[in-house]
Structures are given as C-alpha cells and as structure tokens.
Design a protein around this nucleic acid. Sequence first.
DNA 1: ACATTAAATTCGA
DNA 2: TCGAATTTAATGT
Length: 240
Amino acid sequence: MRCSKEVDGDATVDAIMIAAEYLKRIAAWSRELNEREIEAARAGIVEKSYRANEFIFMRGDPFDYWTGIVTGLARMSTVSSGGKAATFAGLTAGAWFGEGSMLKGEPRRYDVVALRDTRLALMDRATFFWLFENSVAFNRFLVRQLNERLGQFIGAVEHGRTLEATSRVARSIASLFNPILYPDMTRHLEITQEEIGALSGISRQNANQCLKRLEKEGLLRLEYGGVTIIELERLRNHGD
DNA sequence: ACATTAAATTCGA
DNA sequence: TCGAATTTAATGT
C-alpha cells in the first residue's frame, strides 16, 4: 500500500507501510531490537525523496525527525560560531543522524544537503522517544553512535585547516567507511570525483589530483564513477 | 577550460 | 532484441 503527496515543492513524502524486513535492510540498529520495538519503529517511519543539491535540513524546519539515508549521498556541514570554518561529514546509505538535536530539543545546528538524488527514512519524534525510553538495544546504539560521531568531529577540528588537500580527501573518504556509522559498507563506494570534492571542500579538479596521488600511494583504486578502498587505516591517518 | 573516455539511451532493422 | 549511433556524464590534464 502506498500513497504520495506533494510537500512544499520538490520533495515527496511516500507514506509507505514499511515492512519489518525492509527496516532491517535500511537501519542496522533495528536488528538488535525485539519484536515490539521493531513494530514501533516500523510504524513511526516514513520515507521522503530529495533531488540532487536540495537542502534536506536547514534552520527553522518545523518538523523534527531522526533521519536515515536509504539511498544516495548527503553532506553535513557545520560552521563554527564565528561563521567561518566549515567541517564536512559525508552521509551515505545506512547513516542515521539528528539524534543530538532530537535529544536536546534544539534546532539543528548544521545543514544537510543532498549531493545526489537521495531517499531518506524519517522517524517521528514520538517514536524516537518511545524507543529511547523503552529499548535498551536502541540506547546502546545511540551511545555508540554519539561517541563515534564525536570522535569524528574532534578529529576533523583537530586537523581541520592544517591538512593538505590530499589528506583531507583521504580522511573524508575513510570516514565514509566507519563501521559504526555506516555498518553495511563493502570496500567499494560509488561516488564521483565531483562528489568527493564537494565532501572535502575542494574543486573537482583538485580532488582528481589528490585521488590520483592516493592511488599512486596504493591506498585506493580509482574506477569510473567510484573508488575501491585498499588501505583503510592508512587513509584514515593520512597526513600524520 | 578543454579533450578524452565511459556509460546510458535511442533508433533502425 | 541486437548492436550501431548518438548523447550525456565522468575523468584526466
């Protein structure tokens, strides 16, 4: 059963009845839940599509959801309070985000932009809090996830400006392979060099040069429309 | 910015 | 339904 309605412009909410099996595919955390919890999660999630370059979240969105990426690619960017330096984090299929704003009841402090056509799963606030209060497994997941993301952002700030473009590229790619944030990844990632540039905050041309350097160093392999990671750890520490 | 190459799509049989 | 021709997208310099 499925019906759709148009919502302010391009994006579409698809009120799909999500099957439990499907939920397991799009949300790794749901595999740890018991029957009752899965049923609650399933019922509280709806899907929505975004086109490339569309803003997924910006300030002042009236509705708050905990959000997972079903397919596609998005960029999360935060600006420091001064309004200057931005740090980027890539979000690929399997990523869930927004729990921080949800838990604190704050507006989002970052922008999320779709880098290509992207399909999201949105969990409403009530469901999120029901799981938060009733599911041990869900809480375990949240703690790991928050901790992991904190580490990622600290790492980004720590090196931030100082890193060479090549190292920034290396690390942004490596961060897409974080097994906790993106549980279902293989070594291969379908991403264009233009998208890698957008994630790393550099031009496509520059990204191309950096990627070739990384390939020469034997850390990854370049393919048409994608990359395959060879040495994940060395990518992650690139530039130290 | 431009030239090259890969992939996707169209079209004719 | 096959594959050659054309168009579109990604890459390399």
